[in-house]
Each structure stands twice: as C-alpha cells, then as structure tokens.
Write a protein that binds this DNA or RNA. Structure first.
Length: 305
DNA sequence: AAATTAGGTTACGCGAC
DNA sequence: GTCGCCAAACCTAATTT
C-alpha cells in the first residue's frame, strides 16, 4: 500500500499547512479545514485468505469492521462471571481470572465516561437515521463526541445537546447540508442551545470547517422538487458564474441555491413556483425573489413568467 | 403566482457584566 | 449565562398587480 503524497497544497485556499490525521486516515487543510484526501488507510479485503477450504473467492477479513459507533469499537469480548471455561469445566487459576476481570472493569467502565459514551452513541445512531445521514457522517459525529467527552466539554450539559452539536459539526465537515434547525426539530432541543454548544466545541477542540457554499444544497433541493438532472446542472452553473462575480458573500447559501434552482427550473421548461422551492429550502419567497432578480440581472438571464 | 412594501428579527464574535 | 454592539440579510404580513 502506498500513500499518495502528490497533494502538497490546499485546493481551496492554496495553504500548504496540511494536516494528516492518522485516526481518520485523511489529510485536511489546517487553515480552512477542507478534507483533501480520504481513506488513505487501506480497508479493502485481503488479497487472499488461508482457510481450510482453500476458498479463493472470499477475500474478506474475519469479523465485523472496527467502528466508532460502539463504545468499545465492537472489538471487546466479555469475560463471563462464571469460573468455568467454554466446556463447563472449572478453571483452576481463579486469581488469574480475577485479575482479568479487574482489568476488564477498568477498561470498560472508567468512571462514567464509557457509559456516557455508549448512550450517546445510541442517540447518534438513531438521530442520524432519522435525518437520513450516511454512516460516514455518523462515524464522524461519534468521533467528535468522543473528543468532546474526553475534553470534559459534556460536563454540565445534557448528552442530547452535545449529541446534536456533534452531528451538526460532522455535517459541516462533510458538507451534507443540514441546518441546526433540522436537527433541533427532530431531537426536540432548542436550536439556540445547540448553536451555542457546537460553537464552543469547535473553538475548544480547534475544529475548522469548510465555508458553506450554495452547491451543497442543490442536490437535496432538486431531489425534493423532482427536477431533472439537466436543471440541476444548470443551477450549478448559475451558482458557479455568480461565484466568479463574487456575488455570494454574506448571503445565505440556501437562498442562493433556491434562487438558482428557481431560475433553472423556469428557463429549463420544468417550472417550479417560488412557493414550492421556499417550502423545501426553508427560505421565504421574498428572499428567493430578491436573490433571483439579482442573479438574473447580473448574469443576463431572461426569466419570462 | 408573483411583486411590492414596511417593519420586526436574526447571527456573528467578543468583551463586560 | 446574558447583554450590547451593529448592519445587512432575512423574515412576517398585508396589499397590489
């Protein structure tokens, strides 16, 4: 396995301050936080296996993959309370067994952290599935929660709030276009509290996230509006041209995305009303109007109604 | 459905309280 | 933890085209 070392500077901000994270197997920019390389660690199946049947088509490794979503990464084996081995015979060296249990206790229930972690991970799993978020996002959220927990940031805060904050930050990093409100609504937690918490976590842990761009919303909105991929491409194009003219700074990315989709849908012969787009994008019709007028104006696009 | 208008509300980081 | 800072961007709501 070889590590690709061709990437030497950030594609976004041209910084050379690249950070290699061994745990995640990825390289990201130390300045803007964008992930440049992923899956550097090779988790693919072994080239061949060595079982008795000589089965050469099954190249899988043994056992479930290691995951952040279980508090012991799914790799821990329990030691039974009985002083017997698997066949039921008494084990003679009881003191040794005692020592083994002691170590297991220490590693498993260190204070209350592991317990806290396992309940938090359950909540992350259930919330993420309700939010239609991929395994990748779940793993990242779990990772962030764990770091926050060991940095003592959960003390005096509810697990739920911290879970939401972790999920939101994971979203930002992986550009999955969910808002604090989306999460707050499903978790039934105040959005302000989540906002306050996720900001503190980011600051204390030194987590940086890529700047949000309108493009990350296009996919989701177009799907929700049942628009053809041609319309979607047109919307991307409009956003790209707007970015070249530096028109997007300070505006809400979802508003730009909504406006671009509106224009593309009208011009492309698959019209959607401002009302419909406002619905799926969580942006008002007024904002869509303002944005789309400005966009159509600057880009010389005719939108006839 | 879309446009217009007017007026109230938010988000941001940071320091002071 | 909250307040205040501030302007622009955003929102709500009513009304008109």
């Amino acid at each position: 396995m070889s590590v690709d070392t061709t990437v030497v500077k950030c594609s976004e901000c041209a910084s050379r301050n690249l950070v290699y994270d061994d745990n995640r197997g990825e390289r990201h920019c130390g300045d803007c936080g964008i992930v440049l390389e992923q899956d550097i660690i090779d988790a693919s199946p072994e080239w061949r296996n060595f079982n008795q049947e000589g089965n050469q088509t099954d190249r899988s490794r043994v056992g479930a993959p290691a995951t952040n979503l279980l508090h012991d990464k799914g790799l821990m084996t329990d030691i039974d309370w009985q002083d017997r081995d698997f066949s039921g015979a008494l084990i003679r060296n009881r003191s040794q067994l005692y020592r083994m249990r002691k170590w297991q206790r220490r590693s498993k229930i260190k204070g209350s952290r592991q317990k806290n972690l396992s309940t938090a991970l359950m909540k992350i799993r259930s919330l993420c599935s309700k939010l239609d978020l991929s395994k990748t996002v779940q793993e990242r959220a779990a990772d962030i929660y764990k770091k926050a927990l060991f940095a003592d940031l959960v003390r005096g805060r509810s697990i739920d709030t911290m879970v939401c904050a972790s999920i939101f930050i994971a979203n930002q990093q992986l550009q999955t276009a969910r808002t604090v409100d989306d999460i707050a609504k499903i978790a039934r937690i105040g959005p302000k509290e989540i906002g306050r918490t996720y900001r503190e976590v980011k600051r204390k842990l030194g987590i940086r996230t890529p700047l949000p761009t309108p493009t990350i919303y296009v996919d989701r909105f177009c799907n929700a509006l049942a628009l053809q991929t041609k319309i979607q491409r047109d919307a991307y194009d409009i956003i790209r041209r707007a970015e070249e003219l530096e028109m997007n700074d300070g505006k809400s990315p979802s508003g730009i995305a909504a406006a671009a989709i509106y224009i593309a849908s009208q011009v492309g012969g698959q019209p959607r009303t401002q009302r419909e787009i406002a619905e799926v994008s969580n942006v008002t019709e007024v904002t869509i109007r303002n944005r789309y007028k400005q966009l159509a104006d600057s880009l010389n696009i005719e939108v006839n109604l």
